[in-house]
Design a binder for these strands. Structure first.
Length: 297
DNA sequence: AACTTGAACAACCGCGATCAA
DNA sequence: GTTGATCGCGGTTGTTCAAGT
């Protein structure tokens, strides 16, 4: 992104000079008296937006100074990128977005910024928060580590298929999503007329194995996504009819690598989890729990 | 009606990478 | 090549607000 070589007024403020001379990271250091921290006020937001409208973004330290904001450049940058920018999309994370986050995270790990690039309007911070507050919470309730195979299996074999199913269900009820099923994949097309700006998704059978065998071929998904512009591949199966079978007896087909139900403790944990009302949030609704209960019994 | 508690979101911080003089 | 400034990422902490006690 090009930096704007605009003129800016030097107010002659001394505060950064001191720190900068003494400490290379001075501009990041905010223990100076003049600097404001914490939540941004409406006035500050206005000041920042107006200044950027007039002069562009970038060079945040001098921008902060010339705008008259008693904030670090870093703070201004963050406020702009994560909140004030017009194309920032906030609010409920849709099912499709949840699915994408889970998929991409399973492939890339905590590469929040990279993941965010594939969720238009979402910031890395928001995705990170989602992961911590929702996904990690689930792991906690399952009493297992988010990074454990146990939990990853839960994501892959229960959570994600259920998300897919809910997306399908919502498509049936309100026609917002059009799902085509073929032998090899499921294609979800979002209706562009609504507000849903989540990219389309194509689930292919072929790439499934490549993800579960860990190490990311970053290329494959990365280029696929960019090449397809509006589409992206994920690596998840497929035919809805498989899900039931998988959930009951996940030993065949795509799931050679893991069987979460082999572990009795885990089975119990899962059963308890889905009977627990607390788990009934955005991720799991009542129907989900009934469904999963059936599979578990 | 005061408190805790916790979920959700916002902001901060350190540090390595990159830029530019 | 060196050095200071800036950017961007990911981990972490802080803030807010609503629900529970």
């Amino acid at each position: 992104m090009d930096h704007h070589h605009h003129q800016y007024v030097d107010f002659g403020l001394r505060r950064e000079d001191n720190i900068d001379n003494n400490d290379r990271k001075g501009d990041e250091n905010n223990n100076n008296l003049d600097l404001k921290r914490g939540s941004w006020t409406v006035e500050e937001d206005f000041t920042l937006m107006n200044h950027i409208a007039l002069h562009g973004e970038g060079r945040w330290n001098s921008l902060a100074r010339s705008a008259g904001l008693k904030r670090t450049g870093k703070s201004c940058r963050l406020r702009w990128l994560n909140y004030l920018r017009s194309d920032v999309r906030r609010g409920n994370i849709t099912l499709e977005e949840q699915l994408l986050i889970l998929q991409l995270h399973s492939r890339w790990g905590n590469r929040w910024s990279k993941i965010a690039q594939h969720l238009p309007g979402r910031t890395d911070n928001e995705i990170k928060n989602y992961w911590r507050t929702r996904v990690q919470k689930q792991a906690k309730q399952l009493k297992c580590d988010v990074n454990s195979k146990e939990f990853k299996d839960t994501l892959h074999y229960l959570w994600i298929p259920r998300l897919v199913e809910r997306i399908q269900a919502s498509s049936n009820s309100n026609n917002q999503v059009n799902i085509q099923k073929t032998n090899e994949n499921i294609i979800i097309n979002n209706n562009k007329n609504n507000n849903n700006i989540v990219p389309n998704m194509i689930f292919t059978q072929e790439n499934y194995s490549s993800t579960t065998t860990t190490t990311s071929s970053e290329n494959s998904i990365g280029t696929q996504i960019s090449d397809m512009s509006d589409n992206c591949y994920t690596n998840y199966p497929l035919n809805q009819s498989d899900y039931g079978e998988i959930l009951i007896s996940p030993t065949g087909g795509y799931f050679q690598q893991g069987d979460i139900f082999n572990d009795n403790n885990h089975h119990q944990n899962m059963s308890q989890l889905f009977l627990d009302d607390n788990v009934c949030d955005n991720l799991w609704n009542i129907d989900d729990m009934l469904f999963l209960q059936q599979q578990l019994n």
